[in-house]
Design a protein around this nucleic acid. Structure first.
Length: 579
DNA sequence: CTGGGGACGGGGCCC
DNA sequence: TGGGCCCCGTCCCCA
């Protein structure tokens, strides 16, 4: 442990104190809040917890395996193991207050393997004797510690493609070993369910697996039923180190011995990653499991449904692997060689090597680049450089048609559209054209085209009358407002998702939300956790469809969406006119 | 409400 | 892998 502790200071990953996350996530200017990251916190926390475990302090759960006893903490086990989370969740759901058993018999997990898994839980380091790799793998699978299972599989050379099969096989084996009196019929049905889950898991890389027949027999607690295992949010993003961990670890007869980082290049590189990333990358996405949909959506947001982000979240996997994942997932614009990293504060995936520190400054408010002329500070050097043009008078972007010169290339671009008279951005509602896309967006957010629009048959009223059931909520509110809201909120909830804004009884709430979202814009949402979460909920499966996982909204894509909206509206209007 | 300038944050490319 | 540079989209502010 000391080795780990000594190694930790070298692991510079910005980790916010969880309690401050909301504040940290706010934009620097929001209420003057500044997030102060404490990179050591999570490591120190783990260290203290491990010390408590070793001294038996505050241990409220004892795991046993074939006579060996392992005092531990329920909260830690619930945090690291889907099985225990489900177990304790079921316990609490059953109104038993979460403290009804203190001994959990895990004879199905070999003592050494259990010891290694506990060591992992408390140190974020897995020390695996190669001879016991299979046992650890099985234990990790049974307890729902996916990252460990993945790493073991990698080390054993088992392919990811076989993940479902292997996991299934292992689980089934364990099931047969442990289930005892459980009826075959029940097992079969559960297996079927798990196959679905695993299939989803394999395709989406969302670790929401239900771990069927409980691998353990809590001594003083009945085994939780499968139904008790809720679909849980991902606790484990793809282990970035899996590729590196393909290198077999050193033999280590003592499972408690902590391997010192720094010895053994490739492997230890992996371990270093593992050490510092696991606590941060893996756990922040935790959301209250009571909101399954939200959890799922957030997972989609955080890791991408197309597998690319999952594969590449801080993952030094091979380019070929990523490419394969991308193509397998349907493609889209994908990075080739640069490693996306996940912001530990807002969970956003930051693409591009070296971009995470830059992004982190948006949370910390740090502005290390100060203008020597006026003292204005900037978060980025390149912005300062552009700013300096104001003082030097440099305007490197001259207009070829007039004497105007500009500081920014995009200013010139905007300006050129004036000369050309081009107004390529047209409001689909009132058909007013704009030279700039942001002006069109501003226009759409407002109500400036409402009058024109209301001359047409009102979509909301029509919808209400023709009995499209789920639109019924509109009847409870001003159809005009609903119309406006739908039209403009579609900017952020594009067609195809459908306007999930209107549900019976939710009109007011959703209107407020949509207005808030319209004010904030999608990129601002991470700074407003509540709205962000609701936004995720409302967005439904948009990100889940693999589109635009990084949150970028290219003009082309936006225009395409708007074009779709226009087509959709025109189509509907035609239908209405025919009626 | 619209046009225009500027600021800011993210992504791509390159070193 | 980090950072510089550039481009882009978006937002804010002002006239």
């Amino acid at each position: 442990m000391d080795a780990v502790r000594h190694a930790l200071p070298r692991l510079q990953l910005t980790v916010p104190v969880p309690m401050k996350t909301e504040k940290v996530a706010m934009s620097p200017g929001e209420d003057g809040l500044i997030g102060i990251p404490f990179p050591e916190h999570s490591n120190e926390l783990l260290s203290h917890l491990n010390h408590q475990r070793r001294t038996g302090l505050l241990c409220d759960l004892t795991l046993t395996s074939r006579g060996a006893r392992y005092p531990t903490h329920r909260s830690v086990m619930a945090a690291v193991s889907l099985y225990f989370r489900g177990l304790f969740g079921a316990e609490e759901a059953g109104g038993e207050g979460g403290g009804s058993f203190s001994v959990c018999q895990l004879d199905c997990v070999a003592p050494d393997a259990l010891d290694a898994l506990l060591e992992f839980a408390y140190t974020a380091t897995l020390t695996i004797p190669s001879s016991g790799m299979r046992d650890v793998l099985r234990g990790a699978q049974l307890l729902g510690i996916k990252c460990v299972a993945d790493a073991c599989r990698d080390i054993l050379g088992e392919k990811v493609e076989g993940e479902t099969t292997e996991e299934q096989r292992a689980q089934n084996t364990a099931t047969e070993r442990m289930a005892g009196g459980e009826s075959r019929v029940e097992r079969g049905s559960r297996r079927k369910m798990d196959k679905k889950k695993m299939k989803k898991f394999a395709s989406c890389h969302i670790n929401s697996s239900v771990f069927n027949p409980p691998p353990a027999s809590p001594v003083s607690h009945p085994s939780p039923s499968s139904d008790s295992f809720r679909s849980l949010p991902s606790t484990q993003p793809p282990s970035p180190e899996q590729e590196e961990l393909r290198v077999k670890p050193r033999q280590n007869g003592d499972p408690r011995a902590i391997r010192k980082p720094g010895k053994g290049a490739t492997l230890n590189g992996g371990l270093l990653h593992w050490l510092h990333e696991r606590p941060h990358i893996a756990h922040p996405p935790l959301v209250p499991p009571s909101n399954d949909k939200l959890s799922e959506d957030e997972d989609m947001e955080a890791f991408g449904d197309d597998g690319v982000l999952m594969e590449s979240t801080s993952v030094p996997t091979s380019v070929a692997d990523r490419g394969a994942a991308a193509s397998a997932a349907g493609g889209g614009r994908k990075r080739k060689s640069q490693t996306p990293q996940q912001c530990p504060v807002c969970q956003k995936i930051i693409h591009g090597a070296g971009k995470l520190p830059r992004h982190m400054r948006t949370h910390t408010g740090e502005k290390p680049f100060q203008c020597s002329a006026c003292g204005v500070r900037f978060t980025r050097n390149d912005k300062l450089k552009i700013h300096m043009r104001k003082h030097t008078g440099e305007r490197p972007y001259p207009c070829p048609h007039c004497p105007a010169r500009f500081l920014h290339s995009y200013d010139l671009k905007n300006h050129l559209s004036l000369h050309s008279g081009a107004r390529p951005f047209e409001c689909p509602l009132c058909h007013k054209a704009f030279a700039r896309e942001d002006h069109l967006q501003r226009h759409r957010k407002g109500h400036s085209c409402l009058e024109v629009r209301t001359r047409r048959p009102r979509r909301g009223a029509e919808l209400g009358e023709d009995g499209r059931g789920d639109e019924g909520g509109m009847e409870q509110s001003n159809p005009l407002e609903v119309l406006s809201l739908q039209a403009h909120s579609s900017t952020f909830f594009p067609s195809g998702v459908g306007p999930p804004l209107m549900f019976p009884g939710d009109v007011e709430r959703e209107r407020s939300l949509a207005q808030a979202l319209a004010q904030l814009g999608p990129h601002r949402l991470p700074g407003y956790p509540g709205l962000f979460l609701r936004g995720l909920e409302l967005r439904g499966g948009r990100e889940a469809e693999g589109e635009d996982p990084g949150g970028t909204h290219s003009p082309a894509a936006q225009r395409d969406r708007w074009a779709d909206e226009v087509e959709e509206e025109i189509g509907e209007e035609e239908v209405e006119e025919e009626e």
